[in-house]
Design a binder for these strands. Structure first.
Lengths: 225, 225, 225, 225
DNA sequence: GATGAATGAGCCTTCATTCAT
DNA sequence: AATGAATGAAGGCTCATTCAT
């Protein structure tokens, strides 16, 4: 009688080792690229390094991504740009007050981006964007604009529901974005620390900044969130 | 007999036009280097560009600075590291209350560094420090440590005079530094702006952060500065 | 007892669709290779392109031809080298006068080679032969020598039969070959045409050159062919 | 008293060895490039080879020519394109009959181009033009068009002076160009020779073709030139 | 047999640095 | 002191060929 194993093999054939590699490859390359781009920057990362860290040869990288720039774009999409549909959906489904929503938004961003390597991409673009205009444009389109749009809708919701004062939304967006960007920069800059000691507590910082922002936005100061 | 002129020449020799240029050379090179390093980053700035912008030839640059790294160090000293003696002296001479002193310190930093190109050096080190460990170490030694030392002395003075609560000084330093670093990064990152619109008002931002910090430091909250 | 069908299968096995494809494979590859070699040259044609145009994968190409060079040799044999037995046979069977024979020979060459893509191989060898000595040697052996041999026999026949003057045959060969080579080069060189206009009429050109050659060869000038 | 030598040195300072190299460099590089392009083709010639043959390093080549394509263009200008002003001037000054002029033109072309390495450039463009459209366009503009223009003027002169029948000039141009192009191709194609023996006599070939052309052009056949 | 993922040698180009003048 | 011609190591990318499936 056939063993359970062989039944599985017959009806649910596992991909061969090679096939498994092939399907995993783009992900491995993107992961290696994220690591290295965040660690060394775009220009200073050599294509071959990315390949080697992903466990393949130079040529293989170019089998999956036609150039270093396209590789970078894919990394941006994978880690930031491609996740806005999900985030936007969460926003549409949110049912609490808008101050709660904003606080949730900032916390979630910190957890899902700020704390991860993806935050290094923002720092990278701020550093090297000027030297790679096409990448900068791509990043603005895929990350900055969707992010601002999401915040704009949140702020507009607060105003529409009478929770926020009718402030200048474009201005208010930066009040929200600024501390988050700051944290991402801070996190990726060993520079600011002497002896490796950083005494900034991100969660507390976020909470404080959130209070400040809501304090400024809410119609009845003193009762945010 | 010597003419009056020759006497002057002997004892108070005015540099000839050529000599004056010669002495100005390093300054012009440092200025050009600061411009370009801030604009494009350390790695992306080509030595020849610096020379050309300074109006000299590639060879001349290496006559004054033995390598691009040494040039960068000189730029750091010229614009940041070398000015701490002056700033420390101002601190020693300051006679007001310590909260006033701290506020003065932050405002002065913004005027003399934040607003100038020198602020780009901080952003640069945060971006590229990881790729150039020797430069990073140099910057920490010449800029970060003296800066922290100065702040430490200010905070200690406040505590010693009973103006500040006896907080953890190392921690408090970052509360002061963080907004300044943030502003420098912000200023040099076109990236964060969509459509070129940035709505952050640095002076107001500084003032607010200063209030917050003092609020946290002062023994009698509500009466800072 | 074997069914009628199986008898047929045994003695006149029709290739299955798969088998037919298998046997056609080299032909499709050779056709694709001819196209591309002629269009872009040997070095500039990528193996994968050939495979793709033939509708197979890169690996399959190397299954049939161990290298790009061998593929090229096969193309040469298929289109030029391998046809000399047939052409030689026609020569042996020809019964007219030798001037008629020569004129026929040139016309036939133009129809069967000059007008077809195969003519591009000659141009290709003239262009790239120097960079691929082994291919050049192969081409000389398989195409140039048999061609010259055929012409030599024709010229010799004319002399033997008293139709041609006893000229230096090796020299005369080139008089015949030159215009044909010229036409093949011309045809594959868009370069010589300004505004895409080429005003050379190949058939007329051949006829003229043939007249000229025969004029020089025939014992009684004025009565060629 | 100063020796004659020192006088020369004083008033006609010879360039230093380095300066002499510098001025000679572009020419040496162009010569090396012409050699190699003609010998191996454009694509198959490696930049470094050109540099080495010119006695310099890889980097130096790019000091004088920003890319391989620009180097090639410079070679074309130097050897073909840039000489049309001179050739056009000769044409303007020519005082004989137009048939004489045409014959002179073909002979001179053979001496100054056909016999030299420059003729290899024509063969090269015919071979690789399709793979390098920008170079092809450049060559057409700089060489083909001026060449045709010159011939057009000659033919027009003959027609205007009643020496040539009023033929279709564009068509006639090719009758003149064809044998010259053919010779250039022939010369650079070892391929057509078995055992290295080519029995084509270029001068005689040119003369014959010239006769043929003039025979077709002249109003009174039989009295060309 | 057929596939196509993987390899790595090779090529064009850049740029910090050197050094003869 | 000043110049700028020269160098050569390094990096992005291509493509013929191999081989596990």
């Amino acid at each position: 009688m056939a063993s359970p194993r062989s039944l599985v093999d017959k009806f649910c054939p596992l991909p061969s080792k090679r096939e498994r590699r092939k399907e995993a490859r783009p992900g491995e390359l993107l992961a290696a690229a994220l690591d290295l781009f965040v660690e060394k920057g775009f220009a200073a990362t050599r294509s071959e390094e990315v390949a080697v860290r992903a466990g393949v040869s130079k040529g293989t990288l170019f089998l999956y991504f036609p150039s270093k720039e396209e590789l970078f774009k894919a990394v941006v999409i994978e880690n930031l740009g491609g996740r806005f549909t999900e985030w936007n959906a969460e926003f549409e489904a949110f049912e609490g007050t808008t101050p709660e929503m904003l606080r949730y938004c900032m916390n979630v961003w910190w957890e899902r981006v700020g704390l991860t390597k993806a935050s290094g991409l923002t720092k990278l673009m701020m550093s090297e964007g000027g030297n790679f205009p096409e990448l900068a444009e791509f990043y603005r389109e895929q990350v900055v604009r969707p992010g601002h749009d999401l915040l704009r809708r949140i702020l507009q919701r607060g105003i529409d529901r009478g929770e926020f004062a009718p402030v200048d939304i474009d201005h208010a967006i930066y009040s929200v974005v600024a501390p988050m960007v700051f944290l991402m920069l801070w996190k990726h800059s060993a520079m600011v620390c002497v002896d490796g000691v950083s005494t900034l507590d991100p969660e507390k910082f976020i909470a404080t900044q959130c209070d400040t922002v809501l304090h400024g936005l809410c119609v009845r100061p003193g009762s945010p969130a």
